[in-house]
């Protein structure tokens, strides 16, 4: 703890880390799509059987979102399609990021999003009324906070779990 440890061996800098605006860009697309799911879910009665429920527009769109969350959670946030879109179309038009962040927390946040939306989708398919709308609303709030306020609930959860020793921090920050 000698003086001015500043930036020496703390949170990963340059070669490691991602532009923190990337996940926020993705979260804004996700937030809008989740809001559409809520709207569709509210304007349509629950389908009568499994196939009908699976083919409802709200369920179809939520299935796409579940798949996207799974992509981010398992392939890593950097390989997420929105991340690729951000790097190809948005990042070149912006100034370089003032800081970079560890990709592990936003990747974990994708897993949290996956759990919430997949649970809602499964319950909807089983025929639980309101499950789809409630899950999409919860996920919307998280995505909105991330996009608008740069507050990533899943990342906070990740930090808490790391601190509690439940998740082992990735070796990425050597």
């Amino acid at each position: 703890m000698s003086a001015a440890k500043t930036g020496a061996n703390e949170t990963p800098e340059k070669p490691f880390g991602i532009d923190p605006r990337g996940p926020r860009f993705g979260a804004s697309i996700t937030a809008v799509l989740l809001l559409v799911v809520v709207l569709l879910g509210l304007t349509e009665p629950l389908g009568s059987d499994l196939v009908a429920r699976a083919l409802q527009p709200a369920a179809l769109l939520l299935t796409v979102l579940v798949a996207l969350f799974a992509w981010g959670a398992f392939a890593g946030i950097q390989k997420h399609p929105y991340g690729l879109l951000y790097r190809a179309l948005v990042a070149p038009r912006l100034a370089p990021p003032a800081e970079r962040e560890d990709p592990a927390p936003p990747t974990f946040a994708q897993l949290v999003g996956l759990l919430v939306t997949a649970t809602g989708l499964v319950l909807h398919l089983i025929g639980v009324p309101g499950a789809l709308v409630i899950a999409a609303s919860a996920a919307f709030i998280a995505a909105f906070l991330n996009a608008v306020f740069a507050y990533c609930l899943g990342c906070q959860l990740y930090v808490l779990l790391v601190r509690a020793g439940i998740i082992r921090r990735s070796a990425a920050r050597a």
Binding site: E10, T11, P105, V162, R169, R173
Partner: peptide, 17 residues
């Protein structure tokens, strides 16, 4: 006072620096 895996810490470090 910082902790690893804390993006606000990086932002605060920049402001202070």
């Amino acid at each position: 006072l910082s902790s690893p895996v804390c993006s606000a810490c990086v932002a605060m470090r920049r402001v202070a620096t």
